[in-house]
Design a protein around this nucleic acid. Sequence first.
RNA 1: CGGGGUGUAGCUCAGCCUGGUAGAGCGCCAGCUUUGGGAGCUGGAUGUCGCGAGUUCGAAUCCCGCCGCCCCGACCA
Length: 511
Amino acid sequence: MQRALSVTRAQNFPDWYQAIVKEADLAEASPTRGCMIIKAWGYGIWELIQQEMDRRIKATGHDNYYFPLLIPMGFIAKEAEHVDGFAKEMAVVTHHRLKNIDGELKPDPEAELTEPMIIRPTSETIIGDAFSRWITSYRDLPVLLNQWANVMRWEMRTRLFLRTAEFLWQEGHTAHASKDEAMDETFLALELYRAFSEEWLAMPVIAGEKPAHERFPGADNTFSIEAMMQDGKALQAGTSHYLGTHFAEAQDIRFTDKDGERKLAHTTSWGTSTRMIGGVIMTHGDDDGLRTPPTIAPKQIVLIPILRDKPEDEAVIAYAKALGEALRGLTAFGLPVRAHVDLKPGKSADKRWDWVRRGAPLILEIGPRDATNGQVSFMRRDALREGDKLKSHAMARDEFVAQAPALLAEIQRAVFAEAHARLHGNIRTDITSYHDLAAYFGSDEDGGGFKGWVRAPWCRPAGAALDAVVEKLKALKLTIRNAPLDQPATFGPCLFTGQPGVEEILIARAY
RNA sequence: CGGGGUGUAGCUCAGCCUGGUAGAGCGCCAGCUUUGGGAGCUGGAUGUCGCGAGUUCGAAUCCCGCCGCCCCGACCA
């Protein structure tokens, strides 16, 4: 069977991922190492993610701010764990002028900065500095802010959307009078991400707390949402941190409480990034390209007029334009329907495959017969084929217009249901020992195939005992993703030690 | 940053071992044919062979250095 992509998932999942990013016109590598050029379809998806995420962030009482890209180097040094976590991947700005030296353009040695700047890898330090000036009284709290920005981390190995040196994200930063309040905020953000991911990206996730060794540098608690990709690997799609008073101590974020005492503020931070697009690709993509969930499809309904250089072309174009106009007058997911008439010159078959690869949810092919009979021929991208053939539906024009929002909602439900079944059908709870874990994940060489996740109790060891567990998992290329928020009342024995378990964790291969 | 691979037309790649005029398929352009679905025929255009230095009468090919990308590892809130 001829597929719209050059590689199938079964042949080679990483190659398939690269093919879809390129062939669905999402992004490409740039001349700048590790950084990507996000193209129209990919950036359009990001804008729709931003729009709805921003709405939800504001609806929970946060305001947007903007802080500088460059951070004085001294700032990053203030919180010890934070430095350790980020020092290795920092881009540093050291000069403010170039000079032509012997025909070569070089940083001017005479223009070296007295204090180098780092390009923000995250903004805790520069926002903490502002907090220390803004917060003096309990009346100033809580501070609830968010920032949309680009950040840079000098990653050793990059993959488009999943891990790039520069990426786009939102970072929420808040300061509170008490630990309880800050913890509530941390969970609020986590729940916002869970709901957003499932409702808007149609990407089911499991929210939980990261184990100690996976915490954000400088956090007391780190929580994540984890999604399952079609190869069984886990993808961390959002994180939320309770930072305790670490940054408050390091940056002197103090306030006078009602009782007249000077107290340290409790801070949080939380973020989601363009990485979510990578998650959407590996959740909803198929061998014909992306199946973009209608909520985030830059064009939800694409109309392709079938033209043949004949007089009747004009009527076909007029019919398609009028239909597009009618569709744009509708509302879906609380927003105007995004319908597009593709009038670019070119063969209609090529145009159709372009939209199949990008994953426009509804693809309409409007020919002379449709125009004459007042009909619509359309394909649902989520259920593109019947057997080897493309499945085309026919419907009266007015009925289609009446049905379009419901169809989009149905597609959204369908892609979510598929992903939901995959996630919840592939978490094994019957693996109770490291031996069984190794038997399950260790059998790769004999063609292993799809491996899901394992959910099992553990005794939550610390120190050297935790290191030993991490090593054992590493031998199987496994990581602990998180301890899901919903925990049972009682626990079986620890998967690793056989001692009494204290919580259940998810174990998986991960991106 | 370590090990391996790789870089030749817009894309996928051959040519490199054994130095001697830069190739194929797809795509692109033109013409004709076709027309409810990834069309056919004919003709055409397109290359600093990743970059730099070297050996040679002559380098895509051999030597050295550098860079990008891919895989594995390390690293990765």
